[in-house]
């Protein structure tokens, strides 16, 4: 297996700062906006972004976690069913702006499931998608992100490996791995 570094800790920090600035540009003080991290891995990024945003935005920003397992379209089509994680949406989604956050955008199927799952909590005014890594040319569905940390050219057999300190890794690093 070959491993190529896409983002190191310093670059990741810069990227997250930029994403936060873009969010603030569009959402001001976040009074009408909530952020929703997608389980299991998007929540770590959502926490990082929430932390960074809170340094600039003085008002409290609402954050929730959304698990999409029960809304997936591949249930009963996989050998081993996906394991569910916690959903915590401690606010009303109805009429608000929602920023969905995930680490990697690949086929777009998770995002489709997330849109479905989110609607169980009400009808948002507007939904945006933020991803750290956008894998180009791998989409199965017409899904595009509004905020992208980095575009990466990949083929289906490659994997993007996100290592964050919050997940127990020694430092923040993003890799592209290729099986040979």
């Amino acid at each position: 297996m070959r491993k190529k570094l896409i983002l190191d800790a310093a670059q990741l920090d810069l990227t997250i700062s930029r994403l936060c600035q873009q969010l603030i540009e569009n959402h001001g003080n976040f009074s009408q906006t909530v952020i929703l991290g997608l389980q299991p891995r998007g929540v770590f990024l959502a926490n990082l972004i929430h932390q960074k945003l809170s340094e600039t935005v003085k008002e409290p920003i609402q954050i929730g976690y959304l698990d999409v397992t029960f809304h997936r379209d591949d249930f009963r089509r996989r050998e081993i069913p996906a394991r569910a994680s916690e959903t915590r949406v401690p606010f009303v989604v109805e009429g608000r702006n929602v920023v969905l956050i995930d680490d990697v955008l690949f086929t777009g199927r998770t995002v489709r499931s997330a849109l479905d799952a989110m609607l169980s909590f009400g009808r948002p005014a507007r939904v945006e998608l933020l991803v750290l890594i956008d894998r180009k040319h791998t989409r199965h569905l017409p899904v595009a992100a509004d905020y992208v940390g980095k575009y990466v050219d990949t083929i289906e057999t490659q994997k993007v490996l996100v290592e964050l300190e919050a997940q127990g890794h020694p430092q923040n690093r993003i890799w592209l791995t290729t099986n040979e």
Partner: peptide
Amino acid sequence: NRPIRKVPS
């Protein structure tokens, strides 16, 4: 306990 208590699984 959600407002819409249903999943499509």
